[in-house]
Design a protein around this nucleic acid. Sequence first.
DNA 1: GATGAATGAGTGTTCATTCAT
DNA 2: CATGAATGAACACTCATTCAT
Lengths: 228, 228, 228, 228
Amino acid sequence: MLPSQARLLLTLPRTPHKMARPPGVSGADTMRAIRKAAIARIFRYGFEAMNLRDLAADVNLKLGSLYNYIPQKQEFLSVLLESTLHELLSDLDAQVSPIADPREKLFAFVRFHTEWHTARKEEVFIGNMELRSLSPQQYVRVIALRKRYEAYLQSILSQGAKAGYWTIRDAKVTSYAVLAMLTGVSNWYRPDGRLSQAKLVKLHERLVAGAIGVQEPMAAPRSAIRHK
Amino acid sequence: MLPSQARLLLTLPRTPHKMARPPGVSGADTMRAIRKAAIARIFRYGFEAMNLRDLAADVNLKLGSLYNYIPQKQEFLSVLLESTLHELLSDLDAQVSPIADPREKLFAFVRFHTEWHTARKEEVFIGNMELRSLSPQQYVRVIALRKRYEAYLQSILSQGAKAGYWTIRDAKVTSYAVLAMLTGVSNWYRPDGRLSQAKLVKLHERLVAGAIGVQEPMAAPRSAIRHK
Amino acid sequence: MLPSQARLLLTLPRTPHKMARPPGVSGADTMRAIRKAAIARIFRYGFEAMNLRDLAADVNLKLGSLYNYIPQKQEFLSVLLESTLHELLSDLDAQVSPIADPREKLFAFVRFHTEWHTARKEEVFIGNMELRSLSPQQYVRVIALRKRYEAYLQSILSQGAKAGYWTIRDAKVTSYAVLAMLTGVSNWYRPDGRLSQAKLVKLHERLVAGAIGVQEPMAAPRSAIRHK
Amino acid sequence: MLPSQARLLLTLPRTPHKMARPPGVSGADTMRAIRKAAIARIFRYGFEAMNLRDLAADVNLKLGSLYNYIPQKQEFLSVLLESTLHELLSDLDAQVSPIADPREKLFAFVRFHTEWHTARKEEVFIGNMELRSLSPQQYVRVIALRKRYEAYLQSILSQGAKAGYWTIRDAKVTSYAVLAMLTGVSNWYRPDGRLSQAKLVKLHERLVAGAIGVQEPMAAPRSAIRHK
DNA sequence: GATGAATGAGTGTTCATTCAT
DNA sequence: CATGAATGAACACTCATTCAT
């Protein structure tokens, strides 16, 4: 790649540099823009391949100015992943926890997961891919959050099994399999694709139900949720 | 000729350096070692984070010597992925194609995939993670090979559906879901873990069978295959 | 999200390093210094032999800082040559174009060329030597500029011939011969040498006049010009 | 540039390497081929840009084998230049020395120089360009030879001047100018070009004669010589 | 002689990070 | 807050050279 900043001033502009402040944007807006741009870049090229000069350019800043918003590239990634996970967990809690019936709860989980993983496709993709770019301490923090999420499904599965709604040979393997299956949609889902979110949810409910042998189908009208 | 130029040459001739020579090694062995070391490194740190000096050190070479085996880091990745996929496809053909019965074939595929993705865990993991490190041309080549693999499963699924062994709502989504589920094992499988390959295969056969609603179970004695 | 991966991150986050900051310098000054240092180095050692680390040191920079001024070593050369040629052409236009009489014009050209090629000896030397270090596209751009310069002399020669001031057998060969002869001085001229610029000009005027057989000598008071 | 040796043996050929000796070529032939190929490469890309792997490939050798013929790249250049200059000087001696009359001698020199510099265009071009790639010791050796050649012309010029055939203001400058003019043809001459060697010689005789004001023309039938 | 394999020393280029202005 | 200018550390890649086979 060519150096993105490449300037050649053999003809020497002698501009005295007074700096401009943004016209009507607040710092918080800029921060949001940076976050968004970063997610897009990391999603497409990976964290290591995202260089800060380009990221700054995305939000009409020069490289140096980025550091008014982020402390370290490395730390920035961690914050990104952790905040995403916190949001995921709190959304999960809000939408699935109220439900008591194991079968209802399982399907609510499927719906929730599928919707989140299509609506926030880029962030979850990053969350899966960029773990190895974390420092050891960051890694353990992030993994802990992920475990909480996985544990949530595992608890649903065990409760339903205990209640006799389905049978499970191996809770761990089953939960991993279900999660892998559901998460897979973020690899190929396109918002403008052939299938609606609702359709996707339906299809995956059926697949999950089949996989673990849910006793009888249930129908409950649920509205697709737009996340963010 | 032109009049001689009086200015004196300030550049000294490069001092020749001491060189070493190969004791008694074969290039092919070294190549194999490089490949193996590269897979391990890419698996652990990612392709971008694998630096060639370390890779060379892994096989007791100095950096420059690597280039007797690798044309470009970038090209090396592509060759790695493509050769893995070619091997995967030819193994698939050898082991699954002979089987005619759709149900048998489906289960053979599950077994094949699971075994390959545990035995060659690192390579398949790389194959899924490092797509974005490919150049556009390399990407299309690799994706084409992957599609052939996916198409194989899709064809099994449709044939079985046509033959009435199971029902499928959406062939594409179903195949993706099944592949994602099965591929997921490469994310957490440990050779020294709690579960044997055979056990894993059994569990996933059941999950897949359930997911697509295979009419009746079948039992066929199959031996787990050690790949490479 | 996918099940968490147990493997531990071995990559440590890059330790941030101590950095320095500019005291009170202007970028334009630095650019000029780089240009000057580069010309000196290329003149003495050749473009390929000029390494950027040393160039940076010449202007009290570290290697990386050079890239705030130069996009690519290769591109830098091209810009250097082209800007020199543009300057040459515009100076030529300013100093020779106003003159109408072919003989006067020819001598003005000789004077101009000789003075420029002694005053800017290094740059023109580079301009002749480093053509082969240019990329094909750069090469055609530079050659086009050189052709304009050559064409200028050719037009003087033909006009004078048409007006009967001298006779020319072959316009192309004659112009090349004259240019080669005049340009030759940049190969051996030393500012502190035995001969003054003025003397040199006189000598070459006579040689050129003789070579093409100018009908009668002319005397016009001309002041030697210091270029840059 | 891509590494020219780039091999990728992921599929591992296990060829035991018996080496081939050339079918019917002698070592001397190979040496000549190397010299020729080197001249062509240096002429086109410059000495520094000529890499030995490519040079070896030009003569169907592998890199290592080159060292059976050349001791050092650096030394090779020096030998190339010196042997060319020795040949030039001995040819000069053979063809021009026998002539006594200053005017005849001058024209013989012009003819000789022009023919040599068109027939051996590449070598003389290299001889002018690559001086700076020589080590200091090599440089002084080569310059000494060049000086002998320059001195030869200077002596012709002074003798003719003393004998009253022409007048010279400054022997040094005049000789440089004449040499530069004549040598210039090697910059643009193409063997398949518009002008024959003979025509070129004629044109340059006239230019030189004019430049130094030779009293009267002379005509002597001379055959163009094919060098090498 | 020819070849394969290895090496040391560059060499251009990228990039996160810092800080005076 | 924004910018320009600087830096250190790394990194992929090249190349002349050596030497056992």
